[in-house]
Amino acid sequence: MNYTMIDAHAHLWLRQDTMVDGLPVRTLEQGRSLFMGEVRQMLPPFMVDGVNSAEIFLSNMDYAQVSAAVITQEFIDGFQNDYLAEVASRYPDRFFVCGMCEFRKPGFLDEVKRLVARGFKAIKIPAQRLLLKEGRVMLNCDEMMRMFRYMEEKGVLLSVDLADGVLQVAEMEEVIQECPRLKVAVGHFGMVTLPDWTEQIRLARYPNVMIESGGITWLFNDDFYPFKGAVRSIREAAELVGMEKLMWGSDYPRTITVITYKMSYDFIMKSPELTDDEKILFLGENARKFYGFSNLPVLPYIKNMCE
């Protein structure tokens, strides 16, 4: 069976150079980064210059026959708005990009308005990073609510990663209820390996809310390929909200330090626990409709030398 595959959660950056919780994140060599006090393998070791570019990702996508990808952001990578605006301009049929603002201090509403004026169609909030030592930034605070109403009015999508479990679910539910036309994608599959993950999944019972699985292979890393626990969690989430509310995401490139990009989806493709129709929805069709992708390329299979 042929699948149209769309990756609903990936990252791009030219260089990491930022601070999170007072600790540095810096690009080093051989795909490594100084990450909040320790050296971590942030990229595959052959990406020696630390540049996580659109062109390298497109090569991976073409090889794995992934037609398009949603590029999200995270504070640990620094602000990539300028680069992602260029990426969207160069590859409009392959990438849907999210802008990101400095949500950890007041003034982000004006930032969002500037990003929308530049053409960004989505805004990313790494909400798990808003649990600051000096106090939480609430998702239902006044400036956030004014921002969400503005995004709803302008048709700008919200991509959000929530803190573990139920901590921010009530805030997010208030936002969804107050802004019923705001399209929301909840990331990391509700932090599926941690307690109360299904409370995040249940947010997709609202019409304009979707769940994407970015990072699911990282969360089930101890199981490793073929990630049977991840497949069972997808099955459980589908029983809660329907397979039409779930989308595949890879969390590229961090996850491909351990597995190949193709492995981030073919455990789903090969699983007998999901039907062909469910795989079509999860691997691409749901994301195509939700993000509005069109003019997707048809990517041929290229035979490997080892075959």
Rank of each mutant, 00 (worst) to 15 (best):
I6K: 09
Q16A: 14
D17I: 00
V20I: 11
L28C: 02
L28D: 01
E29F: 00
Q30H: 03
Q30N: 14
R32V: 00
S33N: 13
S33V: 04
F35G: 05
Q65G: 04
Q65I: 07
V66E: 14
I71K: 07
Q73T: 08
G78Q: 04
G78P: 06
A88C: 09
P92K: 03
P92C: 12
D93Q: 12
P106S: 06
P106W: 01
F108D: 15
L109G: 10
E111K: 05
E111C: 03
E111I: 04
A117W: 14
A117S: 15
A117H: 13
R118Y: 04
G119C: 12
Q128S: 12
R129V: 13
L130M: 09
L131C: 03
D142L: 09
K154S: 09
D161P: 07
D164P: 11
G165H: 00
E173R: 12
T193K: 11
L194N: 12
P195Q: 05
Q200E: 02
R205M: 10
Y206V: 01
V209F: 05
E212T: 06
L219M: 11
F220D: 09
P226K: 03
G229Q: 07
A230N: 10
R232P: 02
E236Y: 00
E244P: 01
E244L: 03
S250E: 08
Y252M: 11
I256T: 15
I259Y: 15
I268D: 13
L274Q: 11
D276C: 07
D277T: 02
L283A: 06
A287S: 15
G292P: 12
P300T: 02
K303H: 10
